[in-house]
Simulated scan of single mutants.
Amino acid sequence: MIFHKVFDGSNFSDKRGGLIFFNTFDMSELVRMYEISPSDTTNIRGWQGHKKEKKWFYCNAGSFIVNLIKVDNFEKPSKTLVAKRHVLTAEQPRIIEISGGYATAFKANEANSKLIVFSNFSLEDSQEDDFRFSVDNWTAAW
């Protein structure tokens, strides 16, 4: 079973302006979206996990490091789990899909970066499937 996927986007520009598109990204599962604008580039948000909820991350300004951990036990996860690192940038359009079973942590690499997050759960359902862990719980490359 695949627990995360990457959708590479494309861009086009002409005299009218630019266009970024993701023609292979199926949005039929999406229920809500929100945008995160970190106050600085030192703050790490995470670790936050979900057993069932699926999320998609897209950087529409600046750049972010996103680390993923496949959680072995949400009540008492192993401290030796290994993070998988992704870099998202506005210049290289890409969406990361993260299935349930993962915890994520991320930080902005540049001032004024913005991350759009899509979810297949309502806010109420997400809150019932929300697991928070200390940022120091696992080692990750920032």
Rank of each mutant, 00 (worst) to 15 (best):
M1E: 11
I2A: 12
I2P: 11
I2T: 13
H4D: 12
H4T: 10
K5H: 11
F7G: 02
F7P: 09
G9T: 05
N11Y: 09
D14Q: 11
K15C: 11
L19W: 03
I20V: 15
I20Q: 09
I20M: 10
F22A: 02
T24H: 09
F25A: 01
D26V: 07
D26T: 04
M27R: 06
S28W: 05
E29Y: 01
R32N: 08
M33R: 08
E35K: 05
I36G: 00
I36V: 14
I36D: 04
S37D: 11
S37Q: 14
S37A: 12
S39T: 08
D40K: 08
T41C: 11
T42S: 13
N43C: 10
N43H: 15
I44G: 01
G46V: 03
Q48F: 03
Q48S: 09
G49F: 04
G49E: 10
G49D: 10
K51A: 14
E53F: 02
K54A: 14
K55H: 15
W56R: 10
W56D: 12
W56P: 07
F57I: 09
C59T: 08
C59F: 06
C59R: 05
N60A: 07
N60E: 14
A61I: 09
G62K: 10
F64M: 14
I65P: 09
I65Q: 12
V66N: 06
V66F: 07
N67K: 10
L68P: 01
K70C: 11
V71H: 03
N73H: 07
F74H: 04
E75V: 01
E75T: 06
S78H: 02
K79A: 14
T80R: 07
V82E: 15
K84T: 12
R85Y: 02
H86S: 08
A90G: 01
E91V: 03
Q92V: 07
R94S: 08
R94T: 09
I98N: 00
I98W: 00
S99E: 13
G100R: 01
G100M: 05
Y102Q: 06
Y102E: 04
A103P: 00
T104I: 12
T104A: 03
A105V: 01
F106Y: 14
F106L: 13
K107T: 07
N109G: 02
N109F: 00
E110G: 00
S113R: 04
I116A: 02
V117N: 10
S119R: 00
N120A: 03
S122Q: 02
L123T: 05
S126C: 06
F131G: 06
F131Y: 15
R132S: 10
S134T: 11
V135C: 12
D136V: 03
W138A: 11
T139H: 11
T139S: 13
A140T: 11
A141M: 14
A141N: 15
